[in-house]
């Protein structure tokens, strides 16, 4: 087991985390996804030992690091962490930034290891520069090299890419994922960016108001969200009420208990057709890779992303029965 949280609670006046349970396997890339204020950063900082939980237990690589009577100090948890604000030490050169944590572990070849780590994030040649002379993206690469170099038991990523611009973000995202997998690290990523969570991680936990809403693979989170909150948070949500006949829904043909149900689906799971559910196109926005159609089915607004021209009806290809 890479990281385990058992019933972790924390409150500052108001509750931040309400009995959080998470099990993250060794070598797994795991994301905590949620809006700001949902408690995801607090959870990460509790794993790091930068905050103490009010109750509950935390295990890192099988070792109990926080819980009743136990509080292993941060520096003895064997972690690596990348901060949103980079947190590169401004008074140390790039090389010293990466080498110092290694030296703290009494590794004799700290400088060579640090150089190699800088090479892996493509910062070879920057060893003697002061962090203040680097761009934001370069500083964050220093921070990533610093966190990876010590081969931590768990790599903690706290919104590591949100201070960077879009292009760089995508490039670094892939790079970090690759490096972590190569090294076989357990990764806990905290982010509010669903694209980041879905594209980087093996499993995602969606958090709201201090409680887990759903833990699943990215595909499942996106295609079969457990509730309305998750469905709305990870992408655009269309909903339609539909009648159930003979145990199957009229629209999308899903198995259902009977009577009337509400189904949910994504804009790209809809096709225009000559038969199916009649619709009326109100507005089209050309988006380059596809066109976004704002249509109405009866009174209900539906968003359709497709390359094909509009038609009189829609057919829903992939949908789920809406939960709460």
């Amino acid at each position: 087991m890479g990281v385990e949280l058992k019933g972790v609670s924390k409150s500052w006046g108001r509750p931040i985390l309400r009995g959080l349970d998470l099990r993250i396997g060794a070598g797994e890339l795991f994301a905590l996804l949620g809006p700001s204020g949902c408690g995801k950063t607090t959870a990460l900082r509790i794993v790091a030992g930068l905050e103490t939980p009010d109750s509950g237990e935390v295990f890192v690589a099988g070792q109990r690091v926080a819980g009743p009577g136990v509080a292993v100090p941060t520096e003895h948890r064997g972690l690596g962490m990348v901060f949103q604000s980079y947190a590169v030490w401004p008074h140390m050169t790039v090389l010293d930034n990466v080498a110092w944590p290694l030296a703290l572990r009494n590794l004799p070849n700290a400088r060579e290891l640090a150089k190699a780590a800088l090479g892996r994030v493509r910062l070879g040649g920057f060893e003697d520069r002061w962090p203040g002379t680097l761009s934001g993206g370069q500083q964050q690469r220093v921070a990533i090299a610093r966190a990876l170099a010590t081969r931590p038991r768990v790599l903690l990523l706290d919104e590591p890419l949100s201070n960077l611009d879009a292009g760089l973000r995508e490039e670094l995202r892939d790079q970090v994922g690759l490096l972590a997998r190569e090294a076989g690290l357990t990764v806990l990523l905290v982010t509010h960016d669903q694209e980041e969570a879905l594209s980087m991680c093996d499993r995602v936990a969606v958090l709201a108001e201090g409680a887990v809403q759903q833990v699943a693979t990215p595909r499942e989170i996106y295609r079969r969200p457990a509730n309305r909150f998750v469905a709305g948070f990870v992408g655009i949500l269309n909903t339609l009420p539909t009648a159930v006949r003979a145990g199957r829904t009229e629209i999308a043909d899903l198995e259902a208990p009977g009577g009337q149900v509400e189904i949910g689906f994504r804009p790209e799971s809809v096709r225009f057709a000559t038969s199916g559910t009649p619709c009326r196109v109100e507005r089209v926005v050309y988006r380059g890779a596809f066109s976004r159609y704002h249509v109405r089915v009866g009174e209900h607004p539906v968003i359709v992303d497709t390359n094909e021209p509009a038609g009189p009806c829609i057919q829903v290809v992939d949908a789920w029965i809406m939960g709460a």
Binding site: E75, M81, A87, A143
Partner: peptide, 10 residues
């Protein structure tokens, strides 16, 4: 976070 990074680093 500059201080916290040092704590995490050991």
């Amino acid at each position: 976070s500059v201080e916290e990074a040092a704590r995490v680093a050991g």
